[in-house]
Design a protein around this nucleic acid. Structure first.
Lengths: 188, 188
DNA sequence: AGGGTAATCGAACGTTCGTTCGATGTCAAG
DNA sequence: CTTGACATCGAACGAACGTTCGATTACCCT
């Protein structure tokens, strides 16, 4: 019972992808009545952990949801405790525009190291037809999948690595590319 | 009505951070009865857009939710269409262990370029006391915030950049660090 | 020890929920 | 046109929901 209620409740949210009912709040927090859960939830609303939407349903509040996007490192740093937070969002909301066409790939090899994309990194890839020169793309060259810059000189398109050890690839035949890298994610 | 129901419903989810009730599904889809909404939802469940959890509540299904984590690029690539998906998760679930203590910072400067952390990148920072040598940390050195490797030689701790242009920092006085970099995110 | 504030409880309320049913409507194949 | 499969509808059910109330308990302050 050490755990404050908001942690228990938000844990439920991230596990179940929905908010618990008051009966469920009572169950998971150890409270013995719905009304205790109701009052506890109202306290959490006052504290900003939860909010009620237009329909009166509980949803995670500004203090709980997502990630706090703070200033830049060199520019200084809001006070660690109790930042009254400008922008709060989910990483998914931040990074993903078209969920149906987006997925994650693990990068193998070092052909893009000079771009800061290393072996083992994850790349967030979106399937799209809107590919512009300079984009980083995932392409199938002669049956092999690779990640490269998409370049164009005149009418000729080619794929350029971000690593001098590798050579630019000029496709022998027509090159169909529909996967563009929207983000790079590296975990430590 | 061009929009298939699952798009309307999942749109509701991402806007409201909860799934609609059947009455609400009827309203937003233009259906005139709860039971139509109920049957429509069941179809979507069969198609994988939605699922019901243990309590019978609707939650987004594997086809809708989060991101598909596929194989590595060099290792080949599951068929683009209709991958029967190993792992599906939210980016937040993937990256964030302790939501309360986690936030996002924008990196300024190039002191970590050799680690693949470039100017303008976002770093996912967690406040923790468990910092080990080799970790990438955000530290306050003489009033300035910087991002560096945390190193230790004997009893002496110091901060090392990942860029030969910069010098290692040996703190004059005691160094209190509680921000460790858990992930790097770069958007294109 | 005592007094006051806040948390918890159990019971009760009207409302909304998910679900089932049978009837009606739509559309394509035979 | 007839048949069958399927989507939609409106009404109905008990169960679960959010909320309120008054009584009880726990906790802090001096």
């Amino acid at each position: 019972m050490k755990n404050p209620y908001h942690e228990t409740i938000l844990e439920f949210f991230s596990e179940h992808r929905r908010m618990p009912s008051y009966a469920e709040i009572a169950r998971i927090t150890g409270l013995n009545s719905k009304s205790s859960a109701y009052h506890a939830a109202n306290r959490l609303i006052k504290e900003g952990w939860l909010v009620k939407d237009d329909a009166g349903k509980l949803i995670p509040g500004p203090r709980a949801t997502g990630i706090r996007l703070l200033g830049s490192i060199a520019a200084g740093f809001p006070s660690p405790v109790e930042e009254e937070l400008a922008d709060v969002m989910t990483l998914d909301q931040l990074l993903i525009r078209n969920p149906q066409a987006t997925f994650l790939l693990k990068v193998t090899g070092d052909s893009m190291v000079d771009e800061g994309i290393k072996h083992g990194d994850l790349v967030l890839v979106e399937r799209t037809t809107d590919i512009k020169p300079g984009d980083i793309v995932v392409a199938n060259i002669d049956g092999e999948w690779t990640i490269k810059y998409f370049r164009r000189r005149g009418k000729q398109v080619y794929l350029e690595p971000a690593n001098k050890k590798y050579r630019t690839i000029v496709p022998r035949e027509e090159l169909r590319i529909d996967l563009v890298v929207k983000a790079v994610i590296r975990q430590y």
